[in-house]
Write a protein that binds this DNA or RNA. Structure first.
Length: 582
RNA sequence: GCUGGGUUCGUAUAACGGUUAGUACCCAAGAUUCUCAAUCUUGUAAUAGGAGUUCGAUUCUCCUACCCAGUACCA
């Protein structure tokens, strides 16, 4: 019997969606689309204590940003569907709103002898756990202990009935059969066998809030929603035998979904799984979008850090899956075509922030100059620039354009100027926002060379340094994103009389030459002159660069000059002379 | 502790009984340049350890080690 592919992503709204969760959603989505099936979102909010406002909204927005669009569970406006309709016959998709349906399934299990009422309070069980622990053992509610505990298996029938009516702390537990070998198949891990004697009697339903636990809700909803494959995280693998037994107890074995358990994402260094703390510590996001928690603490997001969603998704897809050949760049459609569960890696995948950056750079290259310019202009505007389409209009407003079309004083640039900057520096950038840092000297005149003689660099951060080089004491990593424009680097090295005097003379010569300030025209004039005078090319050029940009490395001098023009060239040299002294 | 899962260069992975163990990121060197990037070329670097099966194990089996997960009235 050919069954329609229907898979679900079932997050719990207890906080922002971790990138590992995004990967799980992505694999589900790819699988669904590849098989022409449905991708469903179901909100598993059966834990009333851990509910976090805004988390559900965040999860859906994050998936939407990634281009993972559900067929069911969420409507066109991105709201979780609450009422059943033709398009959503399985609604509602929030388990809290399905509250009423679970009890009868739990009752069915009791009626058939697969479950029982348990009256032990949380405190009683906790006491047993601590007692067992101090005796060096572990307390487990299972076939060995349940006959000594307070439940409908041990208590007389009328007492059970009485407790059911008079107390509200009881639960319904699954009666795990004794000594049965559960034979399971995982689409990624293959055949697995577990003896039920190692399992416990899990709580399925709680009287206290009249809500099911994950296990019951999950099985019932997957069955009701006609889920064909369950693709979820590895943390669920230990519960798989229970889930198998539940399908059996309900008599749903025929339509039981197939299971695939994905390995976890591991931290870039050291041991253990990737956590929010690793991101803070090592300087990368672990969440797709920025998140602010109730205490006002902010967590960075891939989107806010400047990643393209395509790059983020591509990187995530390759973390634990590969197409079997050397291809690494995939659009979503190509992923849908190439994805297969049997090429998913079983072992945990260590996340590599360098690779994530590399992906973004690759995607940046694929964008046209127009696209990149369009993305960069808002950033320029946020730095106080006015970008004009028509230079003539701005001129009437009193703008004074220099070079290729920029008013350094009033912070006005032409769109054409910006486009040319983008075209020149884009290949050096990993993110669109990098263009600002790289090309700052093409937009701003130096206001001061503030950190005179001080090496540039933001605060030192911990970064995963290649372990082969970690022992090298010279290795120090700075967060370059915090470097301010015109921080004077290597002043001591290049700002010397024997360099800056020739630098001024060269500037005067170039400005007096009357040549047009294009790269092709200006470059030979400048270089030939320095050569003719017998000055050291590298030192003089770097001295000019220092005056122009505050740094001894960066864009080509002739390129810079072609943008800023003759007047600005002279003005910056004079300013440097004044500020840096002679 | 117990139960389950996992283990190929630093990282992600390829090789599903026969390869000089391949590719990408990172790192290094060279070319190029006024410098830095970018680019191109080159290089360093791995089958956790031990038994077994086999003519032959990265690949199959077992043991050990290590890592991960679960062991909640959380998901």
């Amino acid at each position: 019997m050919e069954r329609r592919t229907r898979v679900r992503f079932a997050p719990s709204p207890t906080g922002p969606l971790h990138m590992g969760g995004v990967r799980t959603a992505l694999y589900n989505y790819l699988y669904a689309k590849q098989n022409g099936g449905d991708f469903i979102i179901r909100i598993e909010d059966t834990d009333s204590h851990r509910f976090v406002p805004g988390a559900e909204r965040y999860i859906i927005e994050a998936l939407n940003w990634c281009g993972i669009h559900p067929d069911e569970g969420v409507d066109a406006d991105g709201n979780v569907v609450e009422v059943a309709s033709e398009k959503h016959p399985h609604a509602p998709y929030r388990q809290s709103q399905r509250k009423g349906i679970y009890r009868s399934y739990a009752d069915q299990l009791i009626a058939n002898g697969y479950a029982y009422y348990a009256f032990d309070t949380a405190e009683e069980l906790e006491a047993k756990r601590t007692a067992a622990e101090s005796a060096g053992g572990t307390f487990i509610y299972n076939q060995k202990t349940r006959m000594e505990l307070r439940n409908s298996l041990t208590l007389p029938e009328d007492e059970v009935r009485n407790l059911l009516e008079t107390t509200d702390t009881w639960t319904i537990r699954f009666k795990m059969p004794e000594n049965v070998v559960v034979k399971m198949d995982d689409m990624i891990r293959g055949h697995i066998e577990v003896n039920t004697d190692t399992l416990d009697d899990k709580v399925l339903w709680k009287r206290a809030d009249e809500l099911p636990t994950y296990h019951l809700a999950n099985i019932v909803d997957d069955h009701l929603m006609e889920i064909s494959e369950v693709i979820r995280g590895e943390e669920w693998l230990p519960s798989l035998p229970l889930h198998y037994m539940l399908y059996k107890a309900f008599g749903w074995e025929d339509t039981m979904p197939r299971f695939a358990h994905l390995s976890l994402l591991l931290k870039p260094d050291g041991k253990g799984k990737l956590s929010k703390r690793d991101g803070d510590r090592l300087g990368f996001p672990v969440f797709p979008l920025k998140w602010v928690n109730a205490a006002g603490e902010e967590s960075r997001g891939y989107r806010e850090d400047g990643y393209f969603p395509e790059a983020f998704v591509n990187m995530l897809a390759m973390l634990g899956w590969n197409p079997g050949d050397d291809r690494e760049l995939f659009t979503m459609d190509e992923l849908i075509g190439a994805f297969s569960l049997d090429r998913v890696i079983k072992s945990g995948a260590r996340f590599n922030p360098d690779k994530a950056r590399w992906y973004n750079k690759e995607y940046l290259r694929t964008k046209s100059d127009e696209e990149v310019t369009g993305m960069f202009i808002p950033m320029l505007e946020s730095h106080g620039f006015n970008v004009v389409d028509c230079p003539a209009c701005a001129l009437t407003a009193g703008a004074e354009f220099a070079g290729k079309g920029i008013d350094f004083k009033n912070h006005i640039v032409t769109r054409e100027y910006v486009a040319e900057v983008v075209s020149l520096v884009r290949e050096r950038a990993t993110f669109v926002k990098d263009i600002w840092e790289i090309a700052a000297c093409l937009f701003l005149s130096p206001a001061d060379y503030a950190a005179f003689g001080v090496k540039a660099g933001g605060p030192e951060i911990q970064k995963p340094v290649d372990p082969r080089r970690a022992a090298d004491p010279r290795v120090k990593v700075f967060d370059d994103s915090l470097t301010a424009p015109f921080l004077a680097k290597d002043v001591d090295k290049f700002w010397k009389e024997e360099n800056f005097t020739p630098a001024f003379r060269a500037q005067e010569h170039v400005c007096a030459s009357g040549r047009a300030f294009t790269k092709e025209s200006i470059e030979p004039v400048l270089e030939d002159y320095i050569r003719e005078q017998g000055w050291p090319m590298g030192k003089v050029m770097n001295c000019i660069r220092l005056a122009l940009t505050g740094a001894s490395s960066g864009l080509g001098i002739a390129d810079i000059l072609s943008f800023i023009g003759s007047r600005e060239f002279a003005s910056r040299m004079a300013f440097a002379a004044e500020r840096l002294g002679k």
